Amino acid sequence: MGAESVPRREVVTGRPGTDRAGLPRPRPAVPAEEDTAVRILMHRQMRAALTATVLLAASLGLLPVTLRLLPLADTWPSVWLVLGVAPYPALLCAGAWYVRRAERNEGDVTAR
């Protein structure tokens, strides 16, 4: 029994991320080029995500208007068929576009 090592207990008396004086720990210095590259990547990824969201919201948001204007809105099976089938190609295309764009953004930034 005495040969087993017991982990030492630690007493936590303050918030994590602070030193003993209660001041925040300084962050490690990041090279300016790396910081700029990360910011560029974040902006590009955000732009791609917002573009995909706007395109999907516009296309799926206009679907009820389109159904209302089409003459096939009077027959219920065709309406449910369009509602059940039409959004999926748009979702798949937007998802595939976003993945390709995100990978291209990461490749552009890491190639620098």
Rank of each mutant, 00 (worst) to 15 (best):
P7R: 15
R8W: 10
R9Y: 08
E10Y: 15
E10L: 15
V11Y: 11
V11D: 09
V11P: 04
V12T: 07
V12P: 13
T13I: 13
T13G: 12
T13L: 15
G14Y: 02
R15S: 10
P16M: 11
G17I: 12
G17K: 08
T18V: 15
T18K: 10
L23A: 13
R25Y: 01
R25W: 04
P26G: 03
P26Y: 08
R27Q: 14
R27W: 12
P28V: 13
P28R: 14
A29M: 09
A29H: 09
V30I: 15
P31S: 14
A32H: 03
E34C: 00
D35K: 04
D35T: 10
D35R: 09
T36D: 08
A37W: 01
V38W: 04
V38I: 12
V38F: 07
I40Q: 12
I40T: 12
L41D: 04
L41I: 01
M42K: 06
H43A: 15
H43T: 00
H43W: 02
H43V: 00
R44T: 02
Q45V: 06
M46L: 14
M46A: 15
M46Y: 06
R47G: 05
L50T: 02
T51S: 08
A52E: 01
A52M: 07
V54Y: 05
L55N: 11
L55K: 13
L55P: 00
L56C: 12
L56Q: 13
A58G: 13
S59Q: 03
S59Y: 12
L60N: 07
L60Q: 05
L62M: 12
L63F: 02
L63I: 02
L63A: 08
L63G: 03
L63W: 02
P64V: 00
T66D: 13
L67Y: 07
L67F: 01
L67E: 08
R68P: 02
R68L: 11
R68C: 03
R68D: 12
L69C: 13
L69P: 06
P71R: 14
P71L: 09
L72P: 00
A73G: 11
D74A: 13
T75G: 10
T75M: 13
W76C: 00
W76R: 04
P77D: 11
W80R: 11
W80D: 09
W80C: 05
L81K: 01
V82P: 09
L83H: 04
A86C: 08
P87H: 03
P87V: 05
P89A: 01
P89T: 04
A90K: 04
A94P: 03
W97V: 07
W97M: 02
W97R: 03
W97H: 06
W97A: 10
V99F: 06
V99D: 10
R100D: 08
R104Q: 12
R104A: 15
R104E: 09
N105D: 14
N105C: 10
E106M: 12
E106Y: 05
E106D: 09
D108C: 09
D108K: 06
T110G: 00
A111C: 05
A111L: 08
